[in-house]
Structures are given as C-alpha cells and as structure tokens.
C-alpha cells in the first residue's frame, strides 16, 4: 500500500511541523484557523487503519462493569469489534460498514442487523449509543468551526452543525491540546444550549509515530443520568498497518468470533 505509506508519512511530517511551530514560535504570531485545527484533530484521531485493545468500564448508579474488546478499523467507515471479556459475552462481534451495523452473538448463533429504530439504544449497556459507533458525521464536513478562545495549552473550538448535517447536537465545544492536536474535552450541547454530555480525553501516549489519547471518559450530563460514566482505556494500539479486508465482511462476524 504505497499510497497509504505516503499519506501517513506526510501526516507524520505535518504533525512534526505543527509540533515545532506551536512550541518554538509565540502563539499570536501563528494563529491558526479553526478549520485547520479541526482538520488536524480529525486526521490525528482517524488514521488509515487502527487495531486497538480496549477496556471499557461502565459505572452505573449501583454497579460497575468492565468489558474488554479488540477493535479493528479502516478509515472511519468500516470497523469490527470483538468482545473478549467478560466470559459470558466473549465472542460477541460487531461489524460496522458505513451506516449499518451487524452483531453476532455466539450464544444464539445469529447475525442480527441492528434496525434503524435501535440505533440510539445504548451500546453494550454503556453511555455510548449504537449510533455513536456507527455515525460517519465527520467533523470536517458536518460542522462550521470557529475559534472561541486560546488558553495556555488549548484551543477552544466551537463546532456548529450545518443545516444539512444529520446531527442532533446544537453545538459542540472542543478543547484541543496545542501540543498534540488532539481533543482534551468535548462538550455536547442541545439546541437550547444545555450541556448533554461531556467527553474527556486524557493520557496521550505515543504509538509508533502517532500520539493518541488512551483514556476516554464519557460523562452524561442529563439530570437523570448524572453519576453515570463510561471510561474507555486503550492499550496496545497499532496504527496504519494493513488489516485484512476479511475483517470487514459479514462472514467475519462468525469467523472472528473466537
């Protein structure tokens, strides 16, 4: 994959340049536009491909559950997730291609296509919805951006969905670390400007040439959901290596179930 190589290579270079620029030169001298910032964030978050080991801790009002899984993704339109832990859920697999999602459950030996009406249901009991996993709303296309503020280490970028974008949010405010061009906090507001949820990205670590936040904390802010949280921790991420196309077919659901 020659092209893939060049692209990531260029990305890495750009990243280094950005890195240097932010640190070496005084800020005001190099004011970036919000669009540029978000483009960088987007490309930093979505590599060409990614293979990650994740653990997800879902804290409810009464109990805390931990899940482990492995995720394979190619761009932002294809991904495959395999549940590894807990034992009773081991082997459950998910496949996402574009806007559709399938699930395989070994216990019932069945592949189920998640219908449109279930898209906003919670994913595996977490504070993420099926839609959060499936959604292809790209930060680049679906939002207009505006730089709200520049604080020491961060840009504050406001993202307003365009009129056509199928996005439920009224606006999103993203804190972007100047060091890594990665998100630090993302605040999701509804149309009445009420905070609905808060994502916090921390513990940026290097994986090869790439820096990536390894802790994602989701804090729902709606009154009846206060106190819940979902924490995703990433270990062992490999970016931009080739992944067999066989992971992104419906047959993979059964094949890679174990």
């Amino acid at each position: 994959m020659f092209f893939g190589y060049t692209k990531s290579h260029v990305q890495a270079e750009l990243f280094c340049i950005a890195f240097l620029l932010t640190f070496v030169f005084p800020l005001s001298a190099f004011a970036e536009t919000a669009v540029e910032i978000i483009n960088k964030v987007q490309s930093n978050l979505n590599g060409k491909t990614a293979v990650m080991n994740l653990s997800m801790v879902v804290k409810g009002k009464r109990a805390t559950r931990t899940m482990k899984m492995k995720s394979y993704s190619c761009g932002d339109d294809k991904s495959f997730i395999q549940i590894l832990y807990p034992g009773k859920d081991r082997g459950i697999t998910f496949l996402k291609i574009d806007n559709s999602m399938w699930q395989y459950v070994p216990r019932i030996e069945k592949i189920i296509k998640i219908p449109a009406s279930m898209m906003l249901q919670s994913w595996m009991g977490s504070d993420f919805t099926n839609d959060d996993l499936v959604k292809t709303n790209s930060l680049t296309d679906d939002y207009t951006k505006q730089l709200l503020a520049e604080i020491d280490q961060e840009y504050q970028v406001e993202l307003l969905p365009t009129e056509e974008a199928a996005v439920v949010w009224g606006r999103i405010v993203m804190g972007v670390s100047k060091q890594f061009y990665l998100p630090t906090t993302v605040l999701y507001y509804d149309e009445d400007d009420t905070l609905i949820r808060k994502m916090i990205y921390t513990d940026v670590q290097p994986f090869g040439e790439k820096y990536y936040p390894t802790k994602w904390l989701m804090l729902p802010q709606e009154p009846e959901k206060i106190g819940k949280e979902t924490m995703v921790e990433i270990s062992n991420a490999v970016f931009d290596e080739d992944i067999s196309e066989s992971y992104f077919t419906k047959r993979a659901l059964k094949r890679y179930s174990n």
Binding site: V58, R62, A63, P86, D89, V105, R107, S122, S126
Partner: peptide
Amino acid sequence: ADYSFAADN
C-alpha cells in the same frame, strides 16, 4: 438489569 448484554434463543 445491570446493563450487561443479554441474549438467548
């Protein structure tokens, strides 16, 4: 009830 995944035939 604990939000865990459940499925059966």
